[in-house]
């Protein structure tokens, strides 16, 4: 009897010790640039795309998604945004147009994911300039995944890429035109396409040597609905080059607005700005 109660006592203590040990390991940070995180916070892009693929959109159906950007350091707002987006009917996924973090630190990316994983739909991200500070590029790759990637959902191909040229001292590597051009010409079976990046080509932080080729490539892209960016912390829908290409810029989380984007037909779209 005595040994049994002793065993029970240990039964309570051992999990507690294990918990303290686990929390301890989590806290034992080697550097703010240390990007070790539990497995559940790694490869988020791939995991979220798998979730999206598990809820396919029938061919010909109207696509609806939420577009936002610049979650950097806006954790209070992230909670409110999630609560609001979860009320939206018929939304397939949410896009964060870069600057997930403010300082390029893994902990921040994890904090944002801890909010956004409560969305009732999957979310995808593209890397922003703040995510590239310090060792942010490596942290982003570990936690989210590829800097340049594409996927097809329903009838739409989405191409997301790194356009944060200033973070590479305008060395001609971002945007990676060699990667982008074949993405734009091959729709992978989709009917239309959308390109999403953080820094818009109209901004000073876009590599000036690549601005003209980028804008030209978008102009030539078949079935392009629009190009979408963050970075400006301000809502806009414009055609800055008067070439028929529409550029959409998101609010930051701090503006307490997001966009519900509806896409149908060949290149028709409607954008509703929602306050939260």
């Amino acid at each position: 009897m005595l040994s049994l109660s002793a065993l029970r006592g240990w039964g309570r203590v051992v999990p507690l010790v294990a918990l303290v040990g686990l929390v301890g390991c989590d806290l034992l940070e080697f550097s703010p640039n240390d990007h070790r995180v539990p497995e559940e916070f790694t490869n988020l892009t791939e995991k979220n795309l798998a979730k999206l693929a598990a809820r396919p959109l029938p061919a010909g159906d109207t696509l609806r998604f939420v577009f936002t950007g610049d979650s950097q350091q806006f954790y209070d707002e992230a909670e409110a945004l999630v609560a609001s987006v979860n009320q939206q009917p018929g939304v397939a996924f949410l896009v964060v147009a870069g600057d997930i973090s403010d300082f390029g630190l893994a902990r921040e990316m994890r904090w944002v994911d801890e909010k956004l994983r409560r969305l009732s739909v999957p979310y995808v991200t593209v890397i922003g300039n703040h995510d590239l500070v310090g060792n942010g590029r490596e942290a982003y790759q570990h936690i989210y995944g590829a800097l340049d990637y594409s996927f097809v959902y329903g009838d739409t191909k989405f191409t997301l890429l790194d356009t944060n040229g200033r973070e590479y001292s305008f060395d001609g590597s971002a945007p990676n035109m060699g990667w982008l051009k074949p993405q734009l010409t091959n729709l992978d079976g989709a009917r239309r396409q959308v390109v999403i990046s953080h820094v818009p080509p109209t901004n000073d932080d876009f590599d000036p040597a690549l601005r003209a080729p980028y804008v030209q490539a978008l102009r030539d892209a078949p079935g392009l609905v629009f190009e979408m960016n963050g970075h400006n912390h301000g809502y806009s829908i414009t055609q800055p080059y008067n070439d028929g290409v529409t550029y959409v810029n998101s609010d930051a989380f701090s503006q307490r607005h997001y966009m519900v984007v509806t896409v149908w037909g060949n290149r028709q779209f409607r954008i509703k700005r929602v306050k939260f």
Partner: peptide, 20 residues
Amino acid sequence: ASYLTNRNGGLRFGQLLTLA
């Protein structure tokens, strides 16, 4: 700084800690 700019519970104090 992240904690101080989120005073409505966006971050818990425990999330800021490191252990040595």
